[in-house]
Each structure stands twice: as structure tokens, then as C-alpha cells.
Simulated scan of single mutants.
Amino acid sequence: MQKQSSYRQSGGCLYLVPTPIGNLEDITLRALRLLKEVDYILAEDTRQTIKLLNHFEITTKLYSFHEHSRQEEVERHIENLAAGQTIALVSDAGMPLINDPGHPLVQAALSRDLLVVGLPGANAALTALITSGLSAERFTYYGFFPRQTKEQQALLALVGEREETAIFYESPYRLKQTLAAMAKVFRLDTPIVVAREISKQYEEYLRGSLEELYAYFQNHTVKGEIVLLVEGLAKARAEDAASISALPLKEQVERVMEEHHLSPKEAIKQVAKTQGLRKQDVYQAYHGE
């Protein structure tokens, strides 16, 4: 067990400092103060962070720390913390460690019982969630949508069994493909939100059904950083299954084929599994045998 008192006054400290995701006014007064007071700053891309520091006239020493940083670099920073220095770790935009490097440094600091303090601040996923209109009571953040088909299928199957809102980051160049993958698995009336360029000049939210947004992006290009949100599917799926179960078997198969874009063979298999019946019985009912 490890107990941390974040406001102890002596010794070194690793500060995890969020930076603006667009509008520079999103930075907090505490973040500005610490960026000025620490001994030095570690950034994923110093070329990006220097713009922020210059804007606020911060002259603190700045060094690079990214996913390819060697273990020797981690150890050097840990020794500096142990010697009483203070370090701020920032990402290019938003919260450090969220789809950004830094975890090895944090783990190393904690293993030495060194102080690690995270500051609250800007985050694209949460900002999109509270503005989306979808339920924000429970949610799961999945990071970037996977590129490999098998990984996509596994993730979509998982999301389909959950009740909470799902949040993804996505590239504007892959959004169409991602929506197409979802349309093969999810109900087409599933509420979807595409948020882009959050906190920037061209911030935009597109809200609608999966079918509507999929159709929209067939004829429209999109630019900027994307947050994709999907309403929880399990409750709707359970309600849908209950309504389908009241239908004759043939109509159940037809309904499943239509809503899930399945072949008769696949739909028969799904209805049989849902109803606890033999596939042969559902097959005979569907084909009128």
C-alpha cells in the first residue's frame, strides 16, 4: 500500500500538467504558475509546447520526452526528482498520458515513493461527452478506433454488449471506414455524435443516427481532430430482442436480417440462439417447411 500526501511542501515532485486542446484560454492559473516555477518541463513535442510557453512568456527550460525516450532518460529524471527538483510533464494538447507517452516516468517515480501530482484541465473526450447530448452518467473511453479488421470486430462486439456511452478518438481520414464498420454491427438508428476541433475556431458537433451520419459523410469531407461517441447499445438491444421475440419465427428472422444486415443463414442462427431453439426448427419456420 502506498499513501500520498499531494501537498507536502518538501522534496521533488512530478507534475502532470494539462495544456489547452485549442483555445489557449483553457489553461488554468495553477498550470501557468507551475510551468513557471518548476525546474524544467518535459514535452512530447517541444516544437508545439514552445508555442504555448512563448505565448505566456514562460522561460522555463524545456526538454523532449516521448515514446522513444530511453530508459536512461527516465532514470536521469527520477534521480533529479529524488534530489529535490520539480518537473512538469505536458502533452501536445490536453491531459498527459491520455494517448500520450509518460507512463514509464510516472511508474518509475511511484516505485521510488516520489511525489506525482496531476492537475485537472482540458480533455477532448470529456468535453465532447458533456456536450454530446448522450448519457454522461456512465461511459467508457476506448482511445483510437483500431485499424485491423479483427480488432475492430472484437471491440464492436464488446461495445454492443455495454450500456454506457462509448467514446473513441478517430482520424478524419478514417471516419467513413469506422462508421461503415459500425453500420455492419450496430442498429442503424443508434444515436451517434461526431465532435471535431473541440475548443478551436471551427468546433462542430454532428448529432444523429448512425444511418444519418454514415450517409452524410459519404458526401462530405471532414477535417481536424475527431471524437466519436456512440450511445450505449445493450439496453436498446434488449428492448429490441423482447419486441422481436413476440413475432412469429419467420418474421423474427426477417427483422434480424433487416436490422443487422445478415444473410438468412446468419439470422436463423441468431434467432435460434436468442430463443433457445434448434436451428433446424427456425430454418423450417422461415422456409415454410
Score class of each variant (00 low, 15 high):
A242S: 14
R187V: 07
R162D: 05
A122G: 08
E161L: 10
P101Q: 01
V256M: 06
K61N: 12
R112F: 10
L89Y: 00
A93F: 00
I244W: 06
A234G: 08
L110G: 04
V256I: 14
L158Q: 15
S132T: 04
F145A: 13
Y7P: 04
Q270Y: 07
Y15T: 02
D240C: 09
Q152H: 01
L134W: 06
A181K: 06
P120F: 05
P101S: 09
E254P: 00
I198S: 08
A246S: 09
A157M: 15
A82N: 15
A154E: 15
K176D: 14
Y283P: 02
E67H: 06
R196N: 06
G232E: 01
Y214D: 14
E258A: 12
K273M: 15
N219D: 09
G22P: 03
F65V: 00
I192H: 00
F56V: 00
R174N: 11
A93H: 02
S199R: 07
Q252L: 04
A181V: 04
E170G: 13
Y202I: 05
E266D: 15
D92A: 07
S91L: 05
L233C: 08
H77K: 08
L206P: 03
Q2C: 07
I268V: 13
I21H: 04
E259F: 06
E231D: 15
Q177L: 11
T190H: 01
E289P: 10
H66D: 10
Q85S: 11
E72S: 07
